[in-house]
Amino acid sequence: MPYDKKSDLPEQVQDNLPSHAEEIFKEAYNNAYEQYKDPDDRDGDDSREEVAFKVAWSAVKQKYEKNENGDWVKK
């Protein structure tokens, strides 16, 4: 299901990402959730939610990376 606000995001996202990265995640997830609603648009047997999560994390990784301490920081 799409997320209305950052506080609706899963704990694994809220507990690890900076605020801006959470916003990127939320927007990418919501867009992918809508874009891949038709199973024929998805590769393999991934659910709509699984595809949206993959897209969202990929979007975050374009702007953020983990540092040597395991914290997400802007590239």
Rank of each mutant, 00 (worst) to 15 (best):
S58N: 15
A28P: 00
V51C: 04
P18L: 01
K54A: 07
E23T: 14
Q62Y: 07
D15V: 02
K6T: 14
W72I: 02
Y29K: 01
V55H: 05
K6F: 08
K66H: 07
D45E: 14
Y33N: 12
S7V: 12
A32I: 04
E50N: 05
L9T: 04
Y33P: 06
Y29H: 09
Q35T: 03
E34W: 03
A28I: 00
E50R: 11
A21V: 07
V55P: 03
A52C: 11
E11M: 05
D15I: 01
Y3W: 06
A32Q: 04
D46I: 03
E68G: 07
D4W: 01
N67S: 13
E68P: 03
Y36R: 10
W57N: 01
D4Y: 02
E65Q: 14
D15H: 08
W72L: 04
Y64P: 00
D41R: 11
N16P: 00
Y29C: 01
V51Y: 02
R48T: 07
D71T: 10
M1Q: 08
N31Y: 11
N69I: 08
E49A: 11
G44Q: 08
P39L: 11
W72S: 01
E65N: 03
K75Y: 10
F25G: 03
G70C: 12
K26C: 04
E34G: 09
